[in-house]
């Protein structure tokens, strides 16, 4: 069944059990069980943090949503939920389209393997078959701009080169939904341009971008919509031109 690219989130709540050192120790857990009851609140197992509550979000093809909010306001939690890693405690997430999450560029990067091997591994994680990767290899290799360095172990790369490799490999899959936690902060002007190009490509193909950032100028540059998160509660999605008002609110 084919369906246009869309993200639909309704009444999404995610509670985060925080398993402290205490809760992770089997001794404490067993002591609690054998003593036969809770010994006060400090022993009562995991504390829960409400990371997101009753969040609603509708995005259509061509939407580029910026997420703003303080540290711990739930931006990353929302991105992880959209990537499918976190299960909702309540509510629903419904996404049509191939999702590429660039939350941590280091994902699946093995420093002692060569650039080529890392592209293969990253591609496999992203859902490509071994054959598809070989077909795309030249294109990805060219895109990284790393040339002969691709045959060398990644640990010999500079931070910028690693970011190039990771970005190229992670976006090699034709993604419809791109999730990014902060813009790629490392690398020179070249990689920024590279990332810019890939992103425009995505936008042209009418995909969806969700970008969390503290950089308002960046959000103005890439996004056409914005949502503010505050302690897990989301503002309505508004036009990017009203960013200043949203921040003042």
């Amino acid at each position: 069944m084919s369906h246009p690219v869309s993200i639909s989130v309704s009444d999404l709540s995610i509670r985060f059990p925080v398993y402290g050192v205490d809760a992770k120790s089997l001794k404490k857990h067993l002591a609690r069980v054998t003593v036969g009851g809770r010994l006060g609140s400090s022993m009562a197992g995991a504390t829960e943090v409400r990371a997101l509550s009753k969040l609603n979000l509708e995005l259509r093809a061509g939407d580029r949503l910026g997420l703003i909010g303080h540290n711990g306001s739930g931006k990353t939690t929302l991105l992880r939920a959209l990537s499918g890693a976190y299960e909702p405690d309540e509510g629903m997430i419904d996404i049509h389209g191939h999702i590429a999450a660039l939350l941590d560029l280091g994902l699946g990067i093995d420093p002692s393997a060569t650039g080529y091997d890392n592209i293969r591994l990253r591609g496999r994680i992203a859902g490509l078959s071994a054959k598809e990767i070989e077909l795309k290899m030249d294109e990805i290799a060219e895109f990284t701009g790393l040339g002969p360095f691709l045959a060398m172990p990644v640990k010999t790369y500079s931070a910028g080169m690693q970011a190039r490799l990771a970005f190229a490999a992670a976006t090699a899959v034709e993604a419809d939904v791109l999730l990014m936690d902060e813009w790629i902060a490392v690398g020179d002007a070249d990689i920024q341009k590279l990332a810019h190009k890939r992103l425009l490509n995505l936008v042209e193909r009418a995909g969806i971008l969700v970008l969390a950032s503290h950089d308002l100028d960046l959000l103005r540059l890439y996004c056409n919509k914005v949502m503010r998160l505050e302690g897990g509660v989301a503002s309505p999605v508004t036009d990017i031109r009203k960013l200043a008002e949203l921040m003042a609110a």
Binding site: M1, S2, H3, P4, V5, S13, A61, A81, G84, E87, P88, D89, E90, G91, M92, I93, D94, I95, H96, G97, H98, I99, D176, R205, A206, G207
Partner: peptide, 11 residues
Amino acid sequence: MDTATHMLRTG
């Protein structure tokens, strides 16, 4: 753009 991938997550 059409796509066949679909992800549904619920409480």
